[in-house]
Amino acid sequence: MADEKTLIDVSHPLPPTLQNILDQTSLKWIFCGGKGGVGKTTTSCSLAIQLALCRESVLLISTDPAHNLSDAFGQKFSKEATLVNGFNNLYAMEIDPSGSIQELIEQADEGSGGAMGSMMQDLAFAIPGVDEAMGFAEIMKHVQSMQYSVIVFDTAPTGHTLRFLSFPTVLEKALGKISQLGGRFGPMIQQMSSMMGAPAGGQEDMFAKLESMRAVITEVNAQFKDPEKTTFVCVCISEFLSLYETERLVQELTSYEIDTHNIVINQLLFPAKDSTCEHCLVRHRMQQKYLNEAHELYDEFFHIVRLPLLTEEVRGPAKLEAFSQMLVKPYVPPS
């Protein structure tokens, strides 16, 4: 296993820890993303725990429809930010982004007797994915008013996440068009709707709402593209498909101008020298091969954090806290 030795001794231009995120106090939004099953939730929880040690207050949000935060901490979380047991400055919440538009429609329905609601519904289906994006914007608006020093997103799997993140630009344009149209045709629509018997003012209300939504999205978009405020942590495992997805994720993030300079490689096997477990050895060799490739590809610009595969599930605050140590102190396999 000569190549393994050289691998462990590989000289890193950038330290293999997430200490850089802890040190960069200007950071407000941190996203953890990657394919499903690579340990995103564990990583984001660990990162949030580490951040809680050096920041005033930390909020951990899961936008994944399959909520894992509750499982990871062994505590039931809801749409409201809840203090995590055993911490005094770490909060967590679980939200379903697509739920938010439903509420918006229901709200509109109650407000103006159906006409507005159907209009909102039309809008939600007119632009594909707009419901999620608007839900996301609502979350951002909500969270922004809450004054946390840093917010960690445990995001949904790759494609889903990227769709959210790319929306601000698309949605901004679309909403800009709609509110422009509103200014031009507003009076006409109003006349029409009053002729149909709908109460006046409802539609103006909607355009005001859209306009405020647009403002939020513009603001959020500006923050996303600011590397001082936002960063994206890519989580993967040392396998071909996962690396492939990570490369795609990195390229897409770059095209959206979202900063990313950390890769967490999870679930690495470190069998003992005298191990006779054939599976472990084979798998270890394969992982080392892809680890090598990852180093060759990303060493220049990325902090590559290597985390081991443990023999137990990382569940509960205590275990997460222990695990989170490895984000700042590189894991050294027992020799």
Binding site: F240, L243, Y244, E247, Y290, N292, E293, A294, E296, L297
Partner: peptide, 10 residues
């Protein structure tokens, strides 16, 4: 892409 991922990605 499987044997030389870094080269392939570059």
């Amino acid at each position: 892409s499987q044997d030389q991922f870094a080269k392939w990605a570059k």
